[in-house]
Design a protein around this nucleic acid. Structure first.
Length: 425
RNA sequence: GUGGAUGUAGCUCAGCUGGUAGAGCUCCGGAUUGUGGUUCCGGCGGUCGUGGGUUCAAGCCCCAUCAUCCACCCCA
């Protein structure tokens, strides 16, 4: 045997047994977004690197130290996307989509960040995002949150998830606050932890959610970010909160909530859980009114969110929610190998006449072996073909999960029976 | 990038002060000649993460390295 090649660090295979849950959760989330009339946009995984350095902010961790970059043969520097919003905005600008409408879009796919792997944190991870362009009102922010709420409800996660909200104000007020914060902290630099001291020059706002207790103590008498938020932003945030209250969505205002990417303005929110250890954010988003312009487009408002599929799946599993892991609904068995052609015709008939997944046994073997594989496939029915059945142009239908007598049916009766069972399921 | 824990069969794990590698589950076969899931019996399966060192002898001790997990950092 030659040497094995291990999977790349931080990357993983999602095998049968887990892929079904992954798929089911992903579909549920996408279906929820589609129900709000958002349209899919398929985006490339590679982008020019400056899209991210300009879009997310030069000093963010995602850009500073977590990007996978490569040089292609034309010597262009490309990056594997660390998130989806920047690409989505670029695509919207490329087609000038906001000139003729107010697109509401969704995307799904893998993202890449070179971070230390941990539970719920992978170097290739999957996000599902929704973005709304050209709409400035608080009803948009609220709609994005309603979607999240619907998703958790649909998946049975709502009791384990909490919503945190904050407003960080307009770009101008952020700049003003940032300056005031630096002015306050600079003389007290020595009392800050090392990370916070570094951020003082790179990204001062992020000092606010430092977990260092002495830093937090220092922040108690620091300028209050809310004093810097202008009345328009304040009104906007109150508007969002009212929509949520009206729909009965619980949330907690967390003044310390600051997002890691520079493009956010006004509303920011996070859906968090304490079931997953320290990687508790399963979905996050907010408003980014300046980003389209920053990336070379017109000055249009926008808002969106991205959910971490890996983490949502993990939570779904941690809470013990069921996921169907069956490979097929019907498993086709032959008593004697000369009936295989008949069985194949039968399988095709069922694929055509029903919506079920039909797995035909391959590889021969005794009936007992075939039955065991039928059971293991998770199928609800075994359809069995032997001399008697072929002679009469019938099949034997055996229910594998219910105490129902095995029946002998012709093809039409079989289709009727299966379809009826699907409808009432 | 920092700190800590852990790597033994496909999976979950045991393995004493160093003495020729074990269990449960899974898988395969049989008991069961037209029928799975329960039970019983048998069997397959391991370069002990990798590389080096100490020793008569290393799964166990030492060093390095890789990976996973946890926390920090950061984020979905």
């Amino acid at each position: 045997m030659s040497k094995k090649t291990p999977v790349v660090r931080g990357l993983r295979d999602i095998y049968p047994g887990e892929s079904e849950r992954f798929d089911m959760v992903e579909r549920s989330m996408i279906e929820t977004i589609r129900k709000y009339g958002y349209q899919e946009i398929r985006l490339p995984i590679l982008e020019a690197i400056d899209l991210f350095s300009r879009g997310l902010g030069e000093a963010t961790d995602a850009v500073e130290k977590e990007m996978y970059t490569l040089e292609d043969r034309d010597h262009d520097i490309l990056a594997l996307r660390p998130e989806g919003t920047a690409s989505c905005v670029r695509a919207v600008i490329d087609r000038n989509m906001t000139r003729e409408g107010k697109p509401r879009l969704w995307y799904a796919g893998p993202m890449f960040r070179y971070e230390r792997p941990q539970k719920g944190r992978y170097r290739q991870f999957y996000q599902i995002g929704a973005e709304a362009f050209g709409l400035a009102g608080p009803d948009v922010d609220a709609e994005l949150i309603f979607m999240g709420h619907d998703m958790w409800k649909l998946l049975g996660l709502e009791s384990a998830v909490e919503l945190e909200m904050n407003t960080i104000g307009s770009g101008d007020s952020r700049r003003a606050y940032s300056e005031a914060l630096v002015k306050y902290l600079n003389p007290r630099k020595k009392e800050l932890d090392a990370d916070s001291e570094r951020r003082l020059t790179t990204n001062p706002m992020r000092i606010l959610d430092s977990k260092n207790s002495s830093t937090q103590k220092l922040l108690e008498s620091a300028p209050d970010p809310h004093d810097f938020i202008d009345s328009a932003s304040r009104a906007h945030f109150e508007g969002v909160c009212e929509y949520l209250d009206h729909e009965g969505i619980n949330f907690r205002v967390n003044p310390r909530l600051v997002r890691g990417l520079d493009y956010y303005t006004d509303t920011v929110f996070e859906w968090v859980t304490d079931e997953l250890g320290s990687q508790g954010t399963i979905c996050a988003g907010g408003r980014y009114n300046g980003l389209v312009e920053r990336l070379g487009g017109p000055s249009v408002p926008a808002a969106g969110f991205a959910a971490g599929l890996d983490r949502v799946v993990l939570l779904h599993e941690t809470l013990g929610m069921n996921a169907d892991e069956s490979a097929a609904d019907v498993y086709v068995i032959v008593m004697e190998s000369q009936h295989e052609a008949y069985a194949r015709r039968l399988a095709q008939f069922m694929r055509r006449e029903t919506s079920l997944r039909i797995r035909q046994h391959l590889g021969g073997g005794k009936v007992g072996v075939q039955m065991r594989q039928a059971d293991r496939s998770g199928a609800r029915w075994a359809v069995i073909v032997g001399d008697e059945e072929v002679a009469e142009n019938r099949v034997a239908l055996k229910w594998l999960r219910e105490e129902t007598e095995q029946e002998s049916l012709d093809f039409e009766q079989l289709a009727t029976c299966l379809n009826r069972a699907v409808e009432s399921h």
